[in-house]
């Protein structure tokens, strides 16, 4: 843990979420809606902008000390690109940031994503309340890990 931080500041601060589209994909309607919805639900929200690489997403997540990386892809590349983010996290030994996913993800792909530790994987038409609740829960889990590591 970086200098100047302590457990009480972790407890006090709201869930910190990095929204990211880590592939080549300009469909940002959903991610922009979620940014506002998460903010309205009291979370601190960062958005990685368009076309960041998986490496850039993880660098930002670590530098900003976020609790959750919420990834969105509507280009069908989730099995490759989400996986690359998960693999890089493992390589770098990061286990106190939760990964959640969403987009046009067929039902049959969800078990594979879950096995990589990427949860949620919500498709179009999912109520915002369900996504918010899931992200809050995953954020709390990541926060607990962060505190255990202190």
């Amino acid at each position: 843990m970086a200098a100047g931080k302590n457990q009480s500041s972790y407890k006090q601060r709201p869930p910190k979420i990095l929204l990211a589209k880590p592939g080549i994909d300009g469909h940002d309607r959903g991610v922009l809606v979620l940014a506002r919805a998460f903010r309205d639900a009291g979370m601190e929200v960062l958005y990685a902008g368009l076309l960041p690489t998986p490496e850039e997403v993880i660098d930002t997540a670590v530098n900003e000390d976020v609790d959750v990386i919420a990834m969105s892809l509507l280009n069908g590349a989730h099995l490759t690109v989400f996986k690359r983010v998960a693999d890089l996290m493992k390589e770098r030994g990061i286990d106190d940031i939760a990964l959640v996913g969403g987009g046009t993800i067929p039902e049959e792909d969800k078990p594979a994503l879950e096995a990589m530790g990427i949860t949620g994987n919500y498709g179009p038409g999912t109520p915002l309340s369900i996504i918010i609740e899931h992200v809050q829960r995953r954020s709390a889990e990541a926060r607990k890990k962060k505190m255990e590591q202190d």
Binding site: G23, I24, D25, G26, L51, G76, A77, T80, V81
Partner: peptide, 22 residues
Amino acid sequence: DMPTLYAYDCDNKRSDGEIGKC
């Protein structure tokens, strides 16, 4: 597809997993 729309060739690392998808 997305790589074509952003002018990346199919052998670019960034195109991995995206070829022919959209």
